[in-house]
Nucleic acid binder design. Structure first.
Lengths: 210, 210
DNA sequence: TGTACATCAGTGAACGCGCGTTCACTGATGTAC
DNA sequence: TGTACATCAGTGAACGCGCGTTCACTGATGTAC
């Protein structure tokens, strides 16, 4: 048994402490192993310094923990985009900052990112949850920020977009492809300046990158 | 045991028959379950109507079978693109046909497509193969066709691309994002005409879609 | 302030299961004479 | 043409393992009196 030596038992009020620790253990396991199927109920319990049956007080199965890891990740992504966009002077700068933050999040948490748009759930239980529609998740927040920024760009003339919502979806799709492909194929000979070129064209920017 | 009732034993010369049947069984399991970890050595053997130890004569482990499924898929993708591009009258038409075929392949084999750019290998063995660089796989063939078609477009003026190789990579990255996102989030409210818009902009086409 | 008790977070043993892997084997097919 | 033999594709029993899940339990914490 490789459980952490001391784990202070929860006092009455803080029943959520273990729950948070389990989610955090699952996230760490996922990023370290790179394998969502290594995130078993028993492995999570081990990592959190707790016996396996303790989990049932908080989660129905390992898939439920992974689902919470995904929801947490969507929340973090939205937070990162909000923070990145808040310091921009112009709409075009804000759009660029959002795109950079998006790509940076995916590069920094590759396996979580992969799982956000993949299957969640464990192979063992057979309860493989179908991916939830993005607009039901916090991912809608990220897309919403892109739409808003691109609308502002269209309004101030830095983008020629005639349909900012549709073009923001195109932009997001491109960002997703970029993030996913760079994570999957790090050794591919990626051309210089790929990201700004894609952003400039998909967002129909009028600047030097467009 | 749910093995197929009759399986004619291989005669001497055709030692590869079972090998091909195993790969085919693995592919079917993957697409039906949508879960690469359901493709266990035992499940593949069951599906092929054979006992588990028979596999060792052909593959070291289940991960090796999945790797062959991926290689086969890259071959099929290249074949589909070749077929789609062969009937086109102009370079621009050929580029469009390649993009359509790419997206269609991904939509038709969503789990194989996901695995082509994801982790290959089984959770159980721990031997999770790192994704191979794309240019070492047959995927280079698909990208090569895009580069060639875009170069032709640039040559005949239907694309304003100044760097067809770089722009073909951008185009491919966009196609990958499109294919991957549509597979992952079928219920998302995708805007009309998203694919031609992305292709037109990323390939810098001069036609009506650009 | 002290004591008996209820609560409840977490334990530890146990189970059945499907898995990967090993091993000695079987029996049909082709070959040497 | 017939027969003994070598080959080799695939079998079946067995193993140890980590898993998910169950169950009765323990023992520290807070509460009622």
């Amino acid at each position: 048994m490789e459980k952490s030596p001391v784990r202070k038992r929860n006092t009455r009020g803080e029943g959520d402490r273990l729950r948070r620790e389990l989610v955090s253990a699952a996230r760490a396991l996922l990023e370290e192993t790179g394998n969502e199927d290594a995130v078993t109920l028993r492995a999570v319990a081990r990592r959190a310094g707790v016996t396996a049956p303790s989990i049932y007080a908080h989660f129905g199965d390992a898939g439920a923990i992974l689902l919470e890891v995904v929801q947490e990740a969507f929340g973090e992504l939205a937070g990162a985009l909000r923070a990145a966009g808040s310091g921009a002077a112009t709409a075009a700068e804000r759009l660029d900052a959002l795109c950079a933050a998006y790509v940076q999040f995916a590069a920094g948490s590759p396996h979580r990112y992969r799982i956000m748009f993949g299957r969640h759930g464990s192979a063992r239980t057979g309860a493989v949850a179908a991916p939830r529609p993005l607009h039901e998740l916090a991912g809608a927040e990220a897309i919403g920020m892109l739409i808003e920024a691109l609308s502002d760009c269209a309004a101030d003339g830095s983008s020629a977009s005639a349909d900012p919502r549709a073009d923001a979806v195109a932009l997001w799709t491109g960002l997703h492809g970029y993030a996913s492909a760079r994570n999957a194929l790090p050794a591919f000979p990626w051309p210089e300046g790929l990201l700004p070129a894609m952003v400039g064209r998909l967002a129909v920017l009028r600047g030097p990158a467009g």
